[in-house]
Design a protein around this nucleic acid. Structure first.
Length: 196
DNA sequence: CACCAGATCCTCT
DNA sequence: GAGGATCTGGTGG
C-alpha cells in the first residue's frame, strides 16, 4: 500500500473540530516504526472544543502540558493520563486549542507488531481505547507536537477507501470525563450491515 | 512541597 | 460493573 500518496493535508484539519472529528471516521491512522507501517482504520473519535467545553484541555488556558494544542492544525497533541499516552490531532488555526481525540482504531496492517507492542496476551481489544491506540502504535509523549500533515512524518492519516454515509455514524456523549458530559461530541462508525 | 484529579486499563465478580 | 494500579502537572499553603 502506498500510504504516503494518500496522506491527508493540513487544510483538512484547519476547520471546526466537529467537522474534522466526524470526517476522520473511516480514514486510516498510519504509524511508521522502524521502516514498518502500522495501520488502523479510525472508527471512534471525540471532539474537544476551544470554547464552552469544560472537559477540553485548553479550557483553562495554555500550560506546559497542553502547549502543542495551540500549535498548527494537523499537529499531534500527545498527553499522558496515569501511565498511558493519548493522541489528539490539533484542529482549527494556530493558537486556538481545539482537537480530535482518537479513541478507537481497527488494526489493518502489522497486527502482529501491534500485539507485541500492546504487551497484552489476548489478541482482542488491541486498540479500542485511546491509551490502547497509542500502545499498539508505539506512540509516546516524545512525539508530542509532531506534524502529522508532513509526508515524511512517522505518524499521519490517510484518506478513506469507502465513503461513509451519515447513517453509519452514531453520536453520543464523551467517555471518561466528569465535566461537559452533556455535549454530544463522540462519534462512532458502524459497519453498513449493522446500521442502527 | 504535598495533595489530588484525571480524555485509562486490566482483572476480577 | 466495580475497584485497584499507578503517574504527572496544576494548584495552593
Amino acid at each position: 500500500m502506498l500510504w504516503k500518496s494518500k496522506i491527508i493535508p493540513r487544510t483538512f484539519y484547519d476547520r471546526s473540530p466537529v467537522e474534522v472529528t466526524k470526517e476522520l471516521l473511516g480514514t486510516f491512522l498510519v504509524r511508521k516504526l522502524n521502516g514498518q507501517y502500522l495501520v488502523g482504520k479510525i472508527i471512534e473519535t471525540e471532539a474537544y472544543l476551544s470554547e464552552g467545553d469544560a472537559a477540553a484541555h485548553g479550557f483553562k488556558g495554555k500550560s506546559s502540558r497542553n502547549k502543542s494544542l495551540y500549535g498548527e492544525p494537523g499537529h499531534a497533541y500527545v498527553h499522558t493520563l496515569r501511565q498511558y499516552s493519548l493522541l489528539d490531532i490539533v484542529t482549527e488555526k494556530s493558537s486556538i486549542p481545539s482537537s480530535v481525540l482518537i479513541r478507537t482504531i481497527e488494526p489493518t496492517e502489522s497486527i502482529e507488531k501491534m500485539k507485541q507492542l500492546r504487551n497484552y496476551p489476548k489478541g482482542k481489544h488491541l486498540a479500542d481505547g485511546p491509551g490502547k491506540v497509542c500502545m499498539a502504535l508505539g506512540i509516546t509523549k516524545t512525539m508530542d507536537g509532531i506534524d502529522m500533515a508532513d509526508k515524511d512524518s512517522i505518524l499521519f492519516v490517510c484518506r478513506k477507501q469507502e465513503k461513509v454515509l451519515p447513517n453509519q455514524i452514531i453520536t453520543s456523549g464523551r467517555i471518561g470525563i466528569s465535566k461537559a458530559k452533556e455535549l454530544e461530541l463522540r462519534f462512532r462508525l458502524v459497519s453498513k450491515n449493522k446500521q442502527k
